[in-house]
Design a protein around this nucleic acid. Sequence first.
DNA 1: ATATTTTTTTTCGAGTCTTGAAATAAATAA
DNA 2: TTATTTATTTCAAGACTCGAAAAAAAATAT
Lengths: 419, 419
Amino acid sequence: MNAPADSADVRRRNLALVLRYLDAHGPCARTEVAVGTGLVHATVTALVTELIDRGLVCEAGSVPSGGRGRPRRLLRLIPERVVILAAQVTLEYVHVMAADFRGHVLHRESAPHHAPYGDPRALAAVIACLVRSAEAAVRNATPHAHLAQLAVAMAGPVVGPSHLVAAAIDFGWHSTDLRALVAAELPGLDCPVDVVNDANMAALAEYHALAAEGVRHPDTVAYIKADTGVGGGLLVGGRVHSGSHGMAGEIGHLPIALDGPECRCGTRGCLATYLGPEPLIRAAGLERLAEAQGGEAALAELDRRLRDGDPDAVAALGAAGHALGAAVLGVSGVTDAGEIILGGYLATWATWFRPGLEARLAGRRALSPDMQPVITFGVLGGEATLRGAFQTCRDALLDDPTSVPATRRTPVGGPVRQR
Amino acid sequence: MNAPADSADVRRRNLALVLRYLDAHGPCARTEVAVGTGLVHATVTALVTELIDRGLVCEAGSVPSGGRGRPRRLLRLIPERVVILAAQVTLEYVHVMAADFRGHVLHRESAPHHAPYGDPRALAAVIACLVRSAEAAVRNATPHAHLAQLAVAMAGPVVGPSHLVAAAIDFGWHSTDLRALVAAELPGLDCPVDVVNDANMAALAEYHALAAEGVRHPDTVAYIKADTGVGGGLLVGGRVHSGSHGMAGEIGHLPIALDGPECRCGTRGCLATYLGPEPLIRAAGLERLAEAQGGEAALAELDRRLRDGDPDAVAALGAAGHALGAAVLGVSGVTDAGEIILGGYLATWATWFRPGLEARLAGRRALSPDMQPVITFGVLGGEATLRGAFQTCRDALLDDPTSVPATRRTPVGGPVRQR
DNA sequence: ATATTTTTTTTCGAGTCTTGAAATAAATAA
DNA sequence: TTATTTATTTCAAGACTCGAAAAAAAATAT
């Protein structure tokens, strides 16, 4: 925001423009890129040449250009050129995925981490181990690929450009530089490491997954999910907005009732006390099962009962749907999100949440019908976070294609000209 | 976001950088600008020359540069060069203000508009009349000033780049192109006309007013105000974020209670039903006065009783303070605003709102103390909206100094060089 | 009084970038 | 074969920033 601009910035931006166009519109000729981006033919030629030099794009045959005239030489992305690493840390496991630029998964591995409470170093070691394994597999399969970035998604607010994990309650951390710890364990890895918030990444992933299905998103999109907890994310123009402390969208503690049940956070009536797994389990009368066999088993049983039409279970979700409706109104009122994506079991159990949710929303007389936020449901399930971590790396590369080195040797000052 | 970049963009950005530096750091020499902006001396010379040509900057004497050496030639802004017009439309009045770049008010005028319900044309005519009057006064006083922009602040959501007022309930409008109407009434005015949301502008103004007092704002700041209604705004990096429908921050209908009082909006438990003027008047037992003499008189009486220590009045605000606390928690939870500015009578009556507000907030065990949002109070009172409309024009000019035409004749291709 | 030092500012050539016009390439139709 | 059409590249021009060197303007040293 406050650094001088120069011609390199112009280049970067226009390269990004061309690369994005090719990514979005598939193989097409230089002429089409010129028309689509607003750049002049000559510039497109130069930019495409650079993208080819960097190995991101190649020519893919010619097609006749309708009637007579020189045929178009198609350009297409080379997705294999770039490999992205994404990691996700949950309470018990670390998941790592390697994928090419298109999102094609090349490698995937998980391991329980048994990291002692309050010891990020142990966890970093597990992450590093899996990452090394993924890297080796990728190097073996596609030795010429460029390792673009590693993003580690993590439950906890991630602050600003330093990527410090400010506080991960479940892990007992406080202002932890997980990025540095992971990077220190991976001395050979020559790609940037980022630490990101898991719910934000899930939001990003669902956003892109829905866009791929043809959904046209509004400027501001909110994401609310519930699984082991209640959280979410906020997207502005397709980018994560993480707020002042990396906590934007963390709406588990949105107050929706002035004197609702007490919450761990110290106040009353938080959304999580209506929509979180424990209150749902309790409302459905499954607390004994949860105590005996754990929360996951109870949720599985809840799922079974819902599908069997158990009235207690259905009623529990119906009531929670009302709370969800209040949250949707709150989020849309504050952020003016034009779309709200529901994920986690909010999506899995959409059938049972819907009645309560819609009842709560229907009451609202919006200023005009097209201002009512659109409710959509996530489609990625448990994959969302990892896909989002991948997506954020992908976006970074699309923003700056110059981060990929040239493969062809290009003499400084462009090709030597002979006279 | 999707237009090609060229060297003109680089110029624009670097000009903005230099102009912003001079605006923020007062008169200083080219060397200091170079160090402060990160630009090279040679470039600063060129950029400053252009700003001087455009009449935005001038040299203001020399100061010895500590010991020996060539003295520094100070540069300073010429605030009189630029005139900005700001208008505000309330239910009964139109206010227009003309101010120079520094914010020095040159002219100020108000008129009741008596615009019939549902007729934006009549209102546009009143605005235009006051604007013409302001323009004439300014032209007379400072004939060489550049008229930069006119911003009209208006109660109602303003949508996207078209500046359409989507719905102004109080005026009976629907998808009104107020900008076009005003521009049509002002054929001679050769400056851009913008229509903006009033609460958003108030937010922007308070943000800058507090910054001028030395407050360091976090990335995300929310603004909540109450006067004739409850509304607000959301600022990200000092810029208004207006959401998908221009309604971000319009939190009057934030649900804070699952089954609170019914609201005009069709749902229950909206913030406005606790914090709006009517409920406060009712809670303080002043509804008869309000019926007889109108809401403003009742609010004035409420103010008097508060200062007299009337227990009913104090109790009313105490309870409302709790609701405000819930709203603050909600807003900060969703947006992760690091600071929340309270305006309107929330600021005037801060003394009486505070206990309830703080009680509600104190319960919250934040993840860490520095994540608790800071609560500040607006200082501009009724001036906020108009100042904000001014500020948004000012920002636009600081972003693009090339919008100000050159006064000196500069030959195309720079000064002619003789050999 | 003159030379030297120091600091600020400008000048100048070089390197990048985009652009528009002209040239080249590669096909079809006459 | 020749003309026409469409796609792509080449080339010179113009706009920027940058780094180094030169010029300017004062204080200090000789």
